[in-house]
């Protein structure tokens, strides 16, 4: 399954918004098959921050592990955020 993050907004910044996005995504998450991958597509996102990412990406990484994949992006705010989140969580994101 591929998730376009722009559907949650193009400016993904606050912790509160990240929490709300994860909560609204939970029903969809339940539809994923036991061996199915979840791919995150950052295209269309303008600004991304560690606060939002910590509330949305990290719980999904903890839940899905290697089945959670971040698709490539040139967005510098995504790149720096992902690097920091890996440092904070002590886990590596799988990239597609």
């Amino acid at each position: 399954m591929k998730v376009e993050l722009k559907k949650f907004g193009t400016t993904l910044i606050s912790r509160q918004a990240g929490k709300e996005a994860l909560a609204s995504f939970q029903p969809t998450l339940g539809e994923i098959g036991a061996s199915e991958n979840l791919e995150i597509d950052f295209s269309g996102v303008i600004t991304f921050s560690p606060s939002w990412g910590d509330e949305f990406l990290v719980p999904l990484l903890n839940q899905l592990g290697d089945r959670f994949i971040l698709l490539p992006t040139d967005n510098p705010s995504v790149k720096v955020t992902v690097k920091l989140l890996e440092k904070i969580s002590g886990k590596k994101f799988r990239t597609g």
Partner: peptide
């Protein structure tokens, strides 16, 4: 080239104040 970074930095500082 800097828009996403300027906005992210500003957002983090402002949101920190509230959080």
């Amino acid at each position: 080239k800097l828009v996403s970074l300027i906005v992210a930095v500003t957002g983090e500082i402002g949101n920190n104040s509230f959080d």
